[in-house]
């Protein structure tokens, strides 16, 4: 059993309009895949489907024994209330939720784990800082520390490196590579093709329909990119019911 996620004729979308249309294929266990494509191509929608936040319009997703709540998910726009009076340490410690639940105590060893995660993202010394005082890059580092603590087999990152400087980006990419070496399955939506070529062995090019999926070098060809760019973003309000066999 080498497949972690399997998409079977998967269609995801909103108000019956597909945003991801007839996706078939599998994500291997321990693979590191970049999901690329223009804005509106369905990258975020696919991720929301993977973590169970939206239900498929048709087809299905097989997760091979991983429950949706066991997948660590970094949304593109986190709904974080930055004015809430909470510190970096507590925010990161929430990553322990799966092991601790509502009542589990945070012991000496857990505190070491939290400190370790903060050190790994370079936020040592930020423990007591209110989250409202963090810069965009520090915020992203904090969220990565929380992902580290979640210790998940499957990790889904929606545009994790947008508006992030080169240094932070390089630091966080180290974590992504570490997850890869630990045989975790990682999916990341990406826009920077140089980063994809340098760091991601596999890619899925989406433009509502899957355009290409496989080794990054085979996917990122000029023909494929052109094809992806021709995708029409708007929903057709007069669209008929899709007749492709389910």
């Amino acid at each position: 059993m080498t497949e972690q996620l399997k998409f079977r004729n998967l269609t995801l979308g909103y108000d019956r309009h597909p945003a991801v249309h007839h996706l078939d294929g599998a994500v291997r266990k321990g693979s590191l895949t970049a999901v690329i494509g223009p804005n509106g191509a369905g990258k975020s929608t696919l991720f929301k489907g993977v973590v169970g936040a939206i239900k498929p319009l048709a087809g299905r997703i097989e997760r091979n024994g991983v429950r949706p709540q066991d997948i660590a998910y970094l949304p593109q726009v986190a709904e974080i209330d930055r004015s809430f009076p909470i510190g970096v340490y507590d925010m990161v410690a929430m990553g322990l939720w799966r092991g601790k639940g509502l009542f589990g105590g945070i012991g000496r060893r857990d505190r070491d784990t939290v400190e370790g995660a903060l050190a790994a993202v370079g936020l040592t010394g930020f423990e007591q800082r209110p989250i409202g005082t963090l810069s965009g890059g520090q915020m992203q580092r904090m969220l990565f520390a929380r992902l580290l603590l979640q210790d998940a087999r499957v990790i889904v990152l929606d545009e994790p490196f947008n508006a992030i400087d080169t240094k932070t980006c390089a630091d966080l990419l180290l974590l992504v590579r570490r997850w890869h070496s630990e045989q975790r399955t990682v999916l990341a939506a990406m826009h920077d093709m140089e980063l994809v070529k340098a760091n991601f062995p596999e890619s899925l090019l989406l433009a509502r329909e899957p355009v290409a999926w496989g080794a990054t070098a085979d996917v990122l060809t000029p023909e494929n990119m052109l094809k992806a760019r021709r995708m029409c973003e708007a929903f057709d309000e007069q669209a008929q019911a899709c007749v492709v066999a389910a």
């Binding site: 949706p68 709540q69 998910y73 809430f84 929430m94 939720w97 929380r146």
Partner: peptide
């Protein structure tokens, strides 16, 4: 005291709470 964690988490980061728990 019993609902402290989900209550705080729902204020700060409701998306994260939804992704890890149904509480």
């Amino acid at each position: 005291a019993l609902i402290w964690r989900p209550l705080v988490l729902e204020c700060v980061d409701p998306g994260f709470l939804r992704s890890v728990s149904r509480a």
